[in-house]
């Protein structure tokens, strides 16, 4: 019960501070909409959102930020960084997590009353995600099971015609970091009951359709689906559809 009140870990050994890399795209003029904070998953950095989504969100009037996860982090450190950046923004923030970044966001929601949250192609449950990864990308995944690095593959993340540049930018994830995310406990309930949207693709080779439904059900809804897209919704040639749908949903939620 009281683990949410008694935070001994934070009181006795706070997460060490680091310099955080945050990309941003700001709207002109700023009409006071809540800012968006994008949180990438394993292998990705803030760059994955800077490519298309940040600028597009700003063009629709939302200040948009993307955080690069710290090196050699852990679930706890990532959650800490997300909450730190969100609390540092001038207004109550909308958290948008992708892949394992959605897991980080789900945990951050228990620590920070977000204005709203979006879980895009969320990897919330480690085992099914690991199963899918082993099927599609055994060579990149197996080493992580025996202490090596986790390497993501083009086939896993992208649809048919992804630019080669994106694939080259992916980073390997140390096994310990991957383990801390895949063995994460179920996230606690969000504070401040924010509206939560789950988006994904039925053709995602990382997140199964079943996992997507399960995550959406956990937050009391059904997933918004974008057939034909790969796992990396924000780098897909059709990147505009999901971000527009997310912003439309957000505009509706903010009005309601």
């Amino acid at each position: 019960m009281s683990s949410r009140l008694l935070r001994f870990e934070d009181w006795t050994s706070p997460v060490p501070p680091v310099r955080r890399e945050v990309f941003s795209a700001l709207p002109h003029p700023d009409e006071g909409e809540p800012p968006l904070l994008f949180v990438p998953g394993l292998g990705h950095g803030g760059w994955a959102f800077r490519e298309h989504w940040l600028g597009h969100a700003a063009s629709r009037g939302f200040a948009a930020y993307a955080l690069t996860p710290r090196e050699r982090g852990s679930l706890r450190a990532y959650v800490h960084d997300v909450v730190q950046v969100a609390a540092g923004l001038p207004r109550q923030t909308v958290l948008v997590g992708h892949g394992t970044g959605a897991l980080v966001v789900a945990h951050a929601l228990a620590r920070y009353p977000a204005r709203a949250a979006v879980l895009a192609a969320p990897v919330l449950h480690g085992w099914p995600a690991l199963g899918a990864a082993l099927r599609v990308n055994p060579l990149g995944t197996l080493p992580a099971l025996v202490g090596g690095a986790l390497t993501l593959s083009r086939k896993q993340l992208f649809g048919a015609d992804a630019p080669e540049a994106h694939v080259e930018r992916l980073t390997r994830t140390p096994s310990a970091v991957a383990r801390s995310l895949f063995t994460a406990p179920e996230p606690a309930d969000p504070v401040g009951s924010p509206p939560v949207l789950v988006v994904g693709s039925p053709d995602d080779r990382v997140v199964t359709r079943k996992a997507l439904d399960r995550t959406a059900a956990r937050y009391g809804g059904a997933p918004l689906l974008f057939p034909g897209m790969g796992h990396d919704l924000m780098l897909d040639p059709a990147w505009r559809d999901p971000i527009d749908a997310i912003l439309d949903w957000l505009v509706k939620e903010l009005a309601g």
């Binding site: 706070p14 501070p17 909450v83 609390a87 540092g88 001038p90 620590r111 920070y112 009353p113 401040g192």
Partner: peptide
């Protein structure tokens, strides 16, 4: 507990920082 102080602040912030923190909380 749901709005941490910046983690690069010192262990024992002074009163001007505490006030800044409260003002930012009100703003946020």
């Amino acid at each position: 507990p749901d709005f941490p102080m910046p983690d690069d602040w010192p262990d024992y912030p002074d009163h001007t920082r505490v006030l800044t923190y409260l003002e930012r909380y009100a703003e946020h």
